[in-house]
Design a protein around this nucleic acid. Structure first.
Lengths: 333, 333
DNA sequence: CTAGCACAGTAAACCGCTTTACATGGCGAA
DNA sequence: TTCGCCATGTAAAGCGGTTTACTGTGCTAG
């Protein structure tokens, strides 16, 4: 591969000149410019990024850590981040922590070694302080989708409270009063906020919340399934369920189908996320849509601003939207 | 950050010694080793990967190019590759081409610049020779899931022919004779092979294939939808459809639902891939499962072998498995 | 007694680019 | 005429490692 020096020699100038020319740090007369351009073309010169990075200390790369890249929600988020990064000439290192705390820690440490310019972090489990401590030492971090308390960095979240509020209101408007909630780990911000939205809607309607119908566990299909079974096994049954993720809703749907409880006939259900499959399941799922593409895009934008020192801590809340499909029916009919 | 020289100074040896010690290229007496280890611990030394890479020319990173990381099939594949890469200490650069030829070209070129050690390539559109030419110039490439004719590199594919054969056989065994196929772009290997499997099954059963019921287009929901509509609009209708991807099948399902054609009552359907949502749709989809995790794992393994020069061109075919659910019924009831 | 060898390292070049500080020539102004 | 300055560059020192070739020093074998 041709190097900068080769180009310089070919063009009859010094490597310095070529370097500075390419980085717009020098004004050269037309003739010289032409010679350099010609040499570059002739030798098919492409700068060695490794050398450039070592020299400048900037990598033009970011790290993206996701809980599970195979999960469509995170995959879409990742795709959006990647697309925006690419637009700005940034490469993205991806790591999938598979819900493993050790791997999260690893990913952050490795980020240090990879010398990426920044990190977009997603997590789906409550932090015990480990992550917060680790992230505090790093400069360019933005948190996406889920909070890690105690780190002061830009954050991009959605209106969790609003979303759950709207979902619950929809159920109440359909005549439901016995409403259960199935959600993720109690320590997670999104879980707390969605629960708060639920409580607010219930409160405003003057309905007492049954605490034993608030089932917190994991944002997973399995937990959705198990929680629904538990609900069905109880003395009294709710007539509607707010599942705080579409994965949970899917699990619920499976349990209900297995128990031959008709949806929405015998049980109404609303999800959260609006994953691609939400409209494909039976029945098509009424759910709260998160603006995934916008979230990813914005997260990268924030990170870039951070890298360029034009940004400090900010918190953005993106609006969500209730998408009404077929999984909610009027109570009793 | 502490450098190698800092460590050397602290330990009272030369940087060379430390470097060689860390890379197991020298035997040092216990005393010296201890001093170096102590210095490393004291200074919290972590080697600068950038410098190491520039120096050695090895990056311990690979590039993964996928058509669409937001697509669960590719996302799962990517997750599997990432997991295996991580096990071996490799980082992975991800790029999503969004079905754009220019972006594919870009990704490959950039790979050259990023100086990654290798590339795992997935594509979902026929190559006009551009990619083949580009890839020929690069050493460490493995093709995953789909072929690019004319490049002699390791490949990891599935038994496409077998899969379609089994799917078709299932339909024939259920009494169907009027079977249509909806598939991806005609130029794609997977499309050809799946079609071949279909023809073989039909041939063995002595059924004539209706060429106008072979609908080739894109591996997308939209095309599945449109193709199904076209099928329904015809003079005669098939009683069963082989959709060569689950995305296609979903589209078909939507079109059929809209036209109030019951599945599997009025129309049987089998998909391909066994994406996570396949069992969640209505009715749960009978489909051909691809061993996604194994594909990803193997692709990385092959690439690693290639990087270490212990491998040349190989082609692996992973077996597929017919997963019977509820979307196929006996013909006539 | 000495040649030779193993041991325990080291000096210095190099990977390819950036950047700081400096150089040269010509020209305008005093 | 001379000074200074602008335009047009250049030399060389990094960035932080790796690697090749080499050096002392002591010990052993002959």
């Amino acid at each position: 591969m041709a190097t900068l020096s080769d180009v310089a020699e070919e063009a009859g100038v010094s490597p310095t000149a070529v370097s500075r020319y390419l980085n717009n740090r020098i004004e050269l007369p037309q003739g010289t410019r032409d010679r350099i351009d010609a040499a570059i073309a002739k030798l098919d010169y492409r700068p060695n990024l490794l050398a450039k990075r070592l020299s400048t200390g900037k990598t033009e790369a970011i790290s993206l850590v996701t809980p599970e890249i195979g999960n469509p929600f995170f995959a879409e988020l990742a795709a959006a981040v990647e697309a925006e990064a690419e637009r700005h000439g940034y490469a993205v290192y991806m790591s999938s922590t598979r819900g493993d705390r050790a791997r999260e820690v690893d990913a952050i440490k490795r980020l240090h070694d990879q010398h990426v310019d920044g990190l977009i972090m997603m997590t789906n489990q409550p932090d015990d302080g480990t992550l917060a401590r680790l992230l505090a030492r790093h400069n360019n971090v933005v948190l996406l989708d889920e909070d890690i308390p105690g780190v002061s960095v830009p954050r991009v979240f959605v209106e969790n409270e609003q979303g759950a509020y709207a979902a619950t209101q929809l159920l109440i408007a359909a005549g439901h009063r016995d409403i259960a909630v199935i959600s993720g780990p109690g320590g997670l911000m999104s879980v707390k906020e969605r629960l708060a939205g639920f409580r607010r809607a219930m409160g405003e309607a003057g309905i007492t919340v049954r605490e034993d119908w608030l089932l917190l566990g994991q944002y997973s299909r399995e937990f959705g399934h198990d929680a629904a079974e538990r609900l069905l096994a109880g003395q009294e049954r709710p007539s509607a369920i707010v599942a705080c993720s579409d994965y949970l809703a899917i699990g619920v749907l499976q349990a209900l189908r297995h128990a031959e409880v008709a949806v929405p006939g015998d049980m109404s259900l609303v999800g959260f996320d609006d994953m691609p499959f939400a409209e494909l399941v039976d029945p098509p799922l009424t759910t709260v849509r998160q603006p995934v593409a916008e979230m990813g895009r914005l997260a990268f934008t924030r990170l870039l601003a951070l890298i360029n020192k034009t940004e400090t801590e900010t918190m953005t809340r993106l609006p969500v939207e209730l998408v009404v499909r077929k999984s909610v029916a009027r109570f009793g009919g």
